[in-house]
Design a protein around this nucleic acid. Sequence first.
RNA 1: CGGGCUGUCGUAUAAUGGCAGUAUACGUGCUUUGGGAGCACGCGGCUUGGGUUCGAUUCCCAGCAGCCCGACCA
Length: 417
Amino acid sequence: MLQSKLFTKTERTFPKDEEAANARFLERAGFIYKNSAGVYSYLPLGWRVIQKLVAIIREEMDAIGGQEMFMPALHDKRYLSATGRWDVDVVFKVLDGKNPKPAFSLSWTHEELITELASKYVHSYKDLPFSAYQIQTKFRNEPRAKSGLLRGREFMMKDLYSFHRDEEDLDRFYDIVKEAYFNVFKRAGIQAVYTLAAGGDFTSSNTHEFQAICPVGEDTIYVCSKCAYAENKEISKLSGGGRCPKCEGKIKEEKAIEVGNIFPLGAKYSDAFDLRYTDEKGEKNPVVMGSYGIGVSRLMATVVEMYHDEKGIVWPESVAPFKVHLLELAGASASPAEAGRKSAKKIYEDLQKIGVEVLYDDRKASAGEKLTDADLIGLPFRLVVSPKTGDKIEVKKRNEEITKIMSFEEVIKLLGN
RNA sequence: CGGGCUGUCGUAUAAUGGCAGUAUACGUGCUUUGGGAGCACGCGGCUUGGGUUCGAUUCCCAGCAGCCCGACCA
């Protein structure tokens, strides 16, 4: 992509009032735009990051047999009424201009919808198990949106739902999802702690959360410094300085961001929508369900919280909007052929040919501005072409201080893996 | 929802009960070019409503909005 064509621009200053690093950097660098508190637009750079995360999540969900689908954001009142969740505080209710009372809500979760639609197709034990997921917008009227993308009123979520004949089969799949989730977070550069937690409005069972330890996190967890066993403070009887119930290791209290969770739902939703199957003996049984969420936009914010320095974001390669930031400093394109060197434009085109994603800063701007922007935007590799580099290219990794001078062939070798 | 802080050009800020200034961004021109270049000219602003006052961007009250703390939080 040509940076001169990118319609967004970086700001010279941080947004006032914002304290969370993800809000400060993502807004300043032009990844997101705040329309209202907790309501954001994803701009071209930010949307590419979301797409990288979505691709990772999709691969891991597909790998465990999850079937991708897409459900409505507009929910008829009958769905939430069936489970008593119509009057939950966070529900946005929609007036349609004719009916004086709201008859629809905006999607805050999809258990009701998928359970009802599953009841159309599931009749026999032969139809089980299966799982389906979607990546969609959730709306929750949070009493206090905060910390940039960490707690929004509108946000993006991957939600997976699984359907089983009994608890044993649910438990089996639960562990499979657990491993898939660890893969997702690891690939995104996030080390997550598997944490025992409560189920809130979703289930009365204990649940598990994937917590990224981080000072701006809203949750408090107790985690064993030896075996990483963890419990959320909201249900825990542990305390900081205590001993781990599993291995006697020392328990530490940590602030953490909940980046994902997995819930055993039992038959709560199946009962509400009469989702039952006939077993081998001809008897009808309720379908046992699980639901599994990953906050995609929150995950993006978490990556920024984990990977930034005073100059800007330091994207892990797996989720960076582009792999390479190619800077052409003034004078470099004066007469490349004459000087016997490859023009920045040619380098840009050749890298694209071999599939390297490049943001090419072809703007008429000072060296200082381009270098500062490169640090702020934070792509993994910075290539500089200038009169000083001659027929070579200067290469710097965003997460390292050293710069190297390389030939184009050496750059290809470095990037082409 | 309770508490606190804050609302001034696009952005970030200053001052002020009576002409609202600076930086940057933006436009034009010229000169520049390795860590947010220089000069000149230009464009552009006081959150809304009420009150006090001869006069309010400024003081007071309320609303709205944003951030932070708390409550809440799959």
